[in-house]
């Protein structure tokens, strides 16, 4: 009985300490009206470990063996959305070496260095679609012809359709950077296009 009470007290006290410490460390607790980026998800909520992410079963003995994304992403270039990792940069800067062939660690992709500029109306920058960054990761057959016919003018693209998971939205908004990062595709300002300077997109 005595033990129980003691243990109970210990639990209560420790929980309070941890909660307060956690709240102080991450600036949580009562919402701070002057917190930085107060409308965005707090960085402390990002990249939760599998045991706490709400989709894994913490009771499963295997769950605790899985890597935590936070640890894996620590050294990778950052991005404002998705996994909060800029995967394109991570490859460009050789921070990760994803295999191009499942068996051959030395197989190298042959990227296609070709941009497609799609004009849009108004002051919104035009879209630059870089084949290069895409073929670093993907094979032609992933998109052609099931998502895009490799032919000029054969692929009318509606942005709303992308948001609903079609065309570019098959990957962007699911796994590749989300569609809310407008400027990564809409990367060619109108005046620059006149000077024929095509900005590299996807960075």
């Amino acid at each position: 009985m005595k033990h129980r009470t003691l243990a109970g007290r210990f639990v209560a006290a420790a929980a309070t300490v941890v909660i307060c410490a956690g709240a102080a460390a991450t600036g949580l607790g009562a919402a701070d009206p002057n917190s930085f980026n107060r409308l965005l998800a707090s960085p402390s909520e990002r990249n939760a470990p599998p045991t706490l992410d709400g989709i894994h079963d913490p009771q499963n003995p295997g769950t605790a063996l899985l890597q935590s994304p936070k640890a894996a992403f620590e050294l990778l270039p950052k991005s404002p959305g998705g996994n909060y990792v800029n995967w394109v940069k991570a490859v460009q800067e050789d921070k990760i070496q994803p295999r191009y062939d499942r068996l051959d660690a030395n197989a190298k992709p042959i990227p296609l260095d070709m941009n497609i500029v799609r004009e849009v109306k108004g002051s919104m920058p035009d879209v630059v679609y870089p084949h290069k960054q895409h073929t670093e990761w993907l094979d032609c057959a992933n998109c052609h012809p099931s998502l895009f016919v490799p032919k000029k003018g054969a692929n009318p693209i509606s942005m709303a359709e992308i948001l609903l998971g079609q065309k570019c939205g098959v990957c962007h908004g699911k796994v590749a950077f989300p569609v809310t990062e407008c400027a990564r595709c809409h990367s060619l300002p109108k005046q620059k296009k006149d000077q024929q300077a095509v900005a590299p997109a996807g960075k």
Binding site: P50, I55, H56, D57, N60, L66, Q67, P69, A72, F73, N83, V85, W87, I96, P98, R99, Y100, D101, R102, P109, E136, W137, L138, D139, A141, N142, V170, C171, V175
Partner: peptide
């Protein structure tokens, strides 16, 4: 228990095409 496939873990190690082209996983 259902399967959880972590895309992030796999894309650190493999390009998309390894699974989605070579192994035939549909998107």
């Amino acid at each position: 228990r259902p399967v959880v496939f972590p895309h992030w873990f796999h894309r650190i190690r493999f390009r998309c095409k390894v699974c989605h082209s070579d192994l035939g996983f549909k998107f």
